[in-house]
């Protein structure tokens, strides 16, 4: 495979540039780095472009630096995923149970006649909307959790491939 002579400015080449800059001691804002890695990891075209750029690079350490950044990103994503799972299981689940319990209690109070009329209707409505809100927020949190897990997996695989590409490039094949 012959790599193009000049690469375009895109997230993949920006990541290589940032890795090089970091290894030379220049600071890079952490948020920028994470966003670039996120963009590269989640896009197939960027992944392919990154591998081609690593193969074409003259510096064998370049692949190593990029792979290390990707692994660090995967660790961060795993940490964020664990936090999201904790929040879902500790807070989300109990918010849902509490709202479901309130719904049942308001049904019970209305049926037994302890609470009547508009007040009973208001209580049922309140607890029902609370249950729906709790479920919706839990779904939102879980979507984010799954997204993080996917990012972590992609970053780990890409780091391995980048190391391989670096080896191929260094052999001059």
């Amino acid at each position: 495979m012959k790599a193009p002579l000049k690469f375009k400015r895109r997230p993949a080449t920006a990541l290589v540039a940032m890795a090089n800059s970091l290894s030379m001691g220049d600071p890079i804002p952490k948020g920028d780095l994470s966003r670039i890695i996120g963009a590269v990891v989640s896009d197939r075209a960027e992944r392919a472009a990154l591998l081609a750029a690593i193969r074409a690079a003259n510096d064998p350490d370049c692949g190593l630096a990029v792979a290390d950044l990707l692994t660090a990103f995967a660790t961060e994503a795993a940490e964020a995923e664990a936090q999201a799972r904790d929040a879902d299981q500790v807070i989300g689940q109990w918010a849902q149970r509490l709202a479901a319990g309130a719904l049942l209690a308001s049904f019970g109070a209305a049926i037994a006649g302890t609470v009547t009329g508009g007040l009973a209707f208001g209580l049922i409505l309140l607890s029902f909307s609370g249950f729906i809100f709790a479920t919706a927020s839990r779904i939102g949190g879980r979507v984010k959790m799954r997204h993080r897990a996917q990012e972590r997996d992609s970053a780990e695989t890409l780091a391995r491939h980048v190391l391989e590409a670096g080896k191929l490039g260094a052999d001059g094949k």
């Binding site: 540039a17 940032m18 090089n20 800059s21 220049d26 750029a53 003259n58």
Partner: peptide, 10 residues
């Protein structure tokens, strides 16, 4: 991005 750092690498 700091592309100037890549001048002899890529």
């Amino acid at each position: 991005a700091p592309y100037h750092r890549l001048h002899n690498v890529l």
